[in-house]
Simulated assay, not measured.
Amino acid sequence: MRLLTLCYRVVKDAFYRFLADDGWAIASHIALSALMSLFPFLILVTALGGLLFGSAQLADQVADILLQAWPTEVATPIAGEIRRVLLGARSDLLTIGSVLAIYFASSGVESLRIGLNRAYGVIESRSWWLLRLESIGYVLIGAMGLLALSFFIVLAPLMITTAVRYAPSLHPLWSLFDSLRISAAAIVLIVALFIVHKWLPAGRRRFVTILPGIGVTLVLWLIAGELFGDYLSNFANAYVSYYAGLASVMVALVFLYTIASIFIMGGELNAAILRWREAQKAPLEATEAAES
């Protein structure tokens, strides 16, 4: 009972701080920035794929990984638009536009930084250009990491085929290949959450202090994805009636807005737990100071 009361107080504190920190407004900023950053990021991935691996088609695999965790009703129309953009892009545009793509993609990282700085109640003291360079570094590392992962996914069938040829008993490995994309998407999500909570906002936090918010974020993302998918399967026509040709974009924005709100709430939950721990330490420190 005491534990439930404590959890209720911490969650209540996190929610009210979420409201005080303009969490809904920041979530809308993150959602719009994420959607605007998605296409430039994939253009960058296409350019890097051609440069590093000699294949621009790996961008399709990266898009599949990024959209794997999205509800099918949201991911399908966005995936179609992504493929249309990537197939229509000329090689010279991929080279020239990569510079701008890096900058625009890094804006999505900056929106996450703003949200977490608000959630953790920290003030950013670093120069704006240093922050932008850091965000660009995250974008490049993320792009190369996803390319390497995509290359492995493309290479995996060849590896399995070769292994089965020499050892037929390994044929059941094919059943594991279908879950490879889902596993890759889960790994990308978890690693990304740890990176952004640990190093993106100002200040430093231990891994143990960010675990609760990350765990709650992942669980709520899964629940939100299922509920949003069910909602769209029944009421998708409403978006078509309201927004016509922009329906797919609006559906993606609403979904990203929901996901961003949960993301910020995860940071607020971590901050609320840290405030509770500090409040518990204060009387003990005061007692020790009085005794000394």
Rank of each mutant, 00 (worst) to 15 (best):
F177Q: 15
R83E: 03
V188A: 14
W129N: 06
Y8V: 02
V154H: 09
G225N: 13
D22E: 13
I187V: 15
H197R: 04
P172D: 06
I30D: 00
E134G: 14
L232N: 02
R113E: 15
A79N: 11
H29L: 10
T5N: 11
T5R: 14
V219L: 15
R277W: 09
I30H: 01
L253D: 01
F263E: 08
R2P: 00
A79P: 03
N117V: 12
G50W: 03
R132F: 11
V219R: 05
T72A: 13
M250F: 14
A282N: 07
A163L: 15
W174C: 06
I141E: 01
F207A: 11
T209V: 08
S111M: 08
Q280V: 07
S111C: 06
V85P: 02
R205T: 01
V10W: 02
A244N: 14
A236V: 10
F207H: 07
Y138I: 10
R204D: 10
W70E: 04
A47M: 14
M1E: 13
A252W: 08
G88M: 10
I160K: 10
A34K: 11
L274R: 12
S37P: 07
R132L: 11
A47T: 11
G80Q: 13
Y242W: 15
M265A: 08
L116M: 05
S292D: 08
I82V: 14
G215M: 06
L38K: 07
F18L: 05
T76K: 13
S107W: 00
V109T: 02
L116H: 02
L140G: 05
E124Q: 12
I259E: 05
K198S: 14
I65Q: 00
N237S: 13
A286N: 09
H29C: 01
L222G: 15
A202N: 03
V254N: 14
E73T: 07
P77W: 01
F41H: 09
L173H: 06
N270A: 04
F39V: 13
S292I: 08
I136P: 00
L52S: 04
A271T: 05
I123D: 13
I262K: 02
Y120T: 05
E81Y: 12
L180F: 15
G108N: 09
I65H: 01
E124C: 09
L256S: 03
D22H: 06
N234S: 14
A47H: 13
P168K: 06
T217R: 02
Q61W: 08
V188D: 06
R181N: 12
F207K: 05
E268W: 09
E226Y: 14
L51H: 04
P168H: 03
T161D: 12
